[in-house]
Structure formats: structure tokens, C-alpha cells
Write a protein that binds this DNA or RNA. Structure first.
Length: 271
DNA sequence: ACTATTTCCTGGATGC
DNA sequence: TGCATCCAGGAAATAG
């Protein structure tokens, strides 16, 4: 599932591949679930637009669009949800099931948005207006970070998933960061000591950057190819390792459910 | 102002 | 083999 590191890698790959290209025409499927803007608004914004740059904002992919004369035109915002994919491929590649949008590029290739579960979202907004709902976990300072969490009664795991606080952390990296910080996911955010908060503050960018580094190449391949390559591999220390030995102390990793989300932790290493 | 729960959606895994 | 059921989860919507 695409979280900050995956979105970062995909956005970089897209930028590398499509920056400077022009969208000649657009096909939009009939399913409205993945559309946050009206289809005609999306088509109007995209058709004839030049892709100036593609980057990550929180868990969103933001494409800055410009007119032929170089003036700002707007932004195309893509959220991948759970299963969203963005493919850049030649038009003769078979169109996968659950393709919701195809942008035909002047270079002859196609940019396709595919999303079986339709938790992803497409929208267009005016130029330079899109911002993440919360703080960027790679940029934030400790005082600000600390203020986000120190008064919350919700479990720290839930707080980490709240995009209005930090934008970009999902279920996997929340678990991984909490493991490295030595903090159990069910702990109330407000109960973390300053020391624990600081450990968490340091663990988050470490985990995210490691993931970006580890995932970079395979995701690039994925975007580059026709789309069926495996998702990126990462060394998870707790996520998805229920019952397996903790890599530090060999204690079996526990899995619990916190507000409907599976959460993994080592009962010995995390307090 | 917060927090917790429900809902959206499909495919893969599981159980009988 | 086939059919039903459950589960995965980001974030918006709803309820408390």
C-alpha cells in the first residue's frame, strides 16, 4: 500500500519520465468513485496541458501543469489509496481492468491511472493551491512534532495515521517507527515521555528514508514497465510478522487491532 | 474540539 | 470445485 516512501518514489519516477510532455487528450472511465473533481473539469484541465513537474505532497502525487505559453494552469492531484497505480506505457500495452483514466501524451505514450479498489482519488485544483493536510514528517522540527502529540488521548498508532497531524505515514511505517522507538502502539499519545517522543521523532525519518532508498529501484521498474512487476520489497521488522521472532530479542511479534487497523509490535522491546 | 466507528470497494485467502 | 465469508486499509462521513 502506497505510503510516503512509495509515493515519493513513484512521483520521482513520473517526473523523470513525463516532465515536459504534453497531454493531448484524456479518456475517463464511467466509475465516479475515484474522481474527486467532475470528469469535465478534469478533462478541461488536463487536455492541452504541459506536465511541468511531478512531486509528492503527503501521500498525494501532485503534477504541476502549465499552458503552452508557460503560464501556470493548475495542478493534477492523484491519491493512490490502497491499490492505485500510475503507469506510463506505450498505447499498445493492453489496458488493465479497473483503468479509470488514460492521458495520451504527445510523446506517444500513455499515462494510466488504475485502481481496482477505488480508494484512490483524482482531482484538479488551481495552480499552487494544493497542500498536505498535516506536517511533512521529513521536515518537521521536534518542538512542533511534540506539540502535535503530547495532548492527545488517542493511541499513538492512531495519531501517527492521522494525516492532519503528519502527512504520509500509513499502517506499515507507523508500526515500523514505533518498533524502532520502543513504544507500544496502544499507548496514549499523551502518555509518551519527552524521551520517547524524541525517539519516535528520530525513528520516523530514518524508517521513511530507508524505505525510499530500498524501494526506489523496484518502484521505478514498476512505473517503467507495463505494470505487473512486484511491489517494492522492504525489510519489515514487525509489520506482517505476527508470531515470528523479534529480530532483536526473539520474542514472538504480536498483532493487535487498534481502531480497525492491524498493529504489530514486540511485547518485550516496546513499552 | 476530539475521538471512535462506519463506510466505501475488490481480490485474495480461508472454510465448509 | 464451488460458493460464501472474511479481511486488507486511506480517509471521508457520521455519531457520540
Amino acid at each position: 500500500m502506497p505510503e510516503l516512501p512509495e509515493v515519493e518514489t513513484i512521483a520521482r519516477g513520473l517526473d523523470k519520465r513525463t516532465a515536459g510532455d504534453v497531454i493531448d487528450s484524456v479518456w475517463i472511465g464511467s466509475r465516479t468513485q475515484p474522481l474527486k473533481s467532475r470528469p469535465d473539469e478534469i478533462a478541461k484541465m488536463l487536455e492541452g496541458a504541459r506536465l511541468k513537474a511531478v512531486r509528492r505532497v503527503g501521500k498525494h502525487i501532485a503534477a504541476d501543469l502549465e499552458n503552452q505559453d508557460g503560464s501556470p494552469r493548475g495542478q493534477w492531484i492523484i491519491h493512490l489509496g490502497m491499490t492505485g497505480r500510475v503507469l506510463v506505457c506505450p498505447p499498445e500495452i493492453e489496458i488493465p481492468k479497473h483503468t479509470h483514466l488514460i492521458a495520451r501524451l504527445h510523446s506517444g505514450r500513455e499515462l494510466r491511472f488504475v485502481d481496482p479498489r477505488m480508494f484512490g482519488k483524482l482531482q484538479v485544483v488551481p495552480a499552487n493551491t494544493f497542500t498536505a493536510p498535516g506536517k511533512e514528517p521529513l521536515d518537521i522540527g521536534f518542538e512542533l512534532f511534540s506539540n502535535l502529540f503530547r495532548k492527545r488521548k488517542t493511541p499513538i498508532k492512531s495519531a501517527l495515521l492521522n494525516q492532519k497531524l503528519l502527512s504520509g505515514i500509513g499502517n506499515i511505517y507507523a508500526d515500523e517507527a514505533l518498533f524502532r522507538a520502543g513504544v507500544r502502539p496502544r499507548r496514549r499519545a499523551a502518555s509518551l515521555t519527552r524521551t520517547e517522543l524524541h525517539k519516535l521523532y528520530e525513528a520516523i525519518p530514518v524508517v521513511l528514508k530507508e524505505a525510499i532508498a530500498a524501494g526506489g529501484s523496484s518502484i521505478s521498474d514498476y512505473v517503467d514497465a507495463a505494470g505487473e512487476e512486484g511491489f517494492f520489497q522492504l525489510q519489515h521488522r514487525v509489520y506482517g510478522r505476527e508470531g515470528e521472532p523479534c529480530l532483536i530479542c526473539k520474542t514472538p511479534v504480536k498483532r493487535i487491532v487498534i481502531s480497525g487497523r492491524s498493529s504489530h509490535y514486540c511485547p518485550k522491546c516496546q513499552k
